[in-house]
Amino acid sequence: MATRKRRAERREQPLSRERIVEAAIELLDAAGEGGLTFRALAERLSTGPGAIYWHVAGKDELLEAATDAVVADALTAAPAGATPRETIRALALGVFDAVDAHPWVGNDLSRAPARSPMLRVFERVGRQLQALGVAHAAQFTALSALQSYILGTGGLNAANARAQHLRAPGTDRTEFIDAAADAWAALDPEEYPFTRGVAEQLRVHDDRAEFVAGIDIILDGITARWAVAPAD
């Protein structure tokens, strides 16, 4: 009954690119990139694939549009009146949280850095590096370091989430991390002394806090090496 009601509501709304992208995001969240097909999308929208093709040329364009919508929303995270450093931190966290909530976004951003979703991040963070006083000759290098860290860390967390689900469906993050920490603590003490030593830190760490700490480390290096004006 609920499914029929939802389909009826969708039929009453005119089909638009925005509705198609919204439905695509729902499919991607539920089934990943492999689950995004025009047949599944048409079923969700109670229409035919031909009507969708009128608005979107193909799966690649649809995936880019879905990623762009998620990223655009993520980049609204920076508070008004924030310093350049605070804004970079907020923008980075916005992307981190978006990839955490939508793991497929990290894959798409890494695969096509020249497309508009990644360019949004590039432009917003780049302007804040200018505001930090980073010398022009160093701006691309500084941005590349931040971009690689943001995408790499977000992608790694998304991969860990997928691995957790595949290895033990229904297991929550705490159980998954505890199992990993136990495995580290049980390693050979001569071969893995460092890893054994940080096993308890792994057990209690917070992904977002560690991510922000990494951003701050990179920004400290950028401002110390390349800033030609006061940072904030």
Rank of each mutant, 00 (worst) to 15 (best):
P84E: 07
R85C: 06
R85K: 08
E86A: 12
E86L: 08
F96S: 12
F96Q: 07
F96V: 03
V99R: 01
V99F: 01
D100Q: 12
A101W: 06
H102D: 02
G106V: 02
L109H: 00
S110L: 13
S110M: 15
A112Y: 15
A112F: 15
A114R: 15
R115V: 04
R115L: 13
M118D: 02
R120L: 10
F122Y: 14
E123I: 12
R124Y: 08
V125S: 02
R127N: 08
R127V: 06
R127I: 01
R127C: 00
A131L: 13
A131M: 00
L132E: 05
L132T: 03
L132A: 07
G133W: 09
V134D: 05
A135Q: 12
A137I: 10
A137G: 05
F140E: 14
F140H: 11
T141P: 01
A142M: 11
S144C: 10
S144A: 14
L146W: 11
L146D: 07
Q147N: 08
S148R: 06
Y149M: 05
G152L: 05
T153E: 15
A158I: 05
A159L: 14
A159F: 07
N160I: 04
R162A: 15
R162N: 12
Q164D: 05
R167A: 11
R167I: 04
A168V: 13
P169Y: 07
G170E: 07
G170P: 05
T171H: 11
D172A: 01
D172P: 00
D172F: 09
D172Q: 00
R173G: 02
T174C: 06
E175D: 06
F176R: 09
F176P: 00
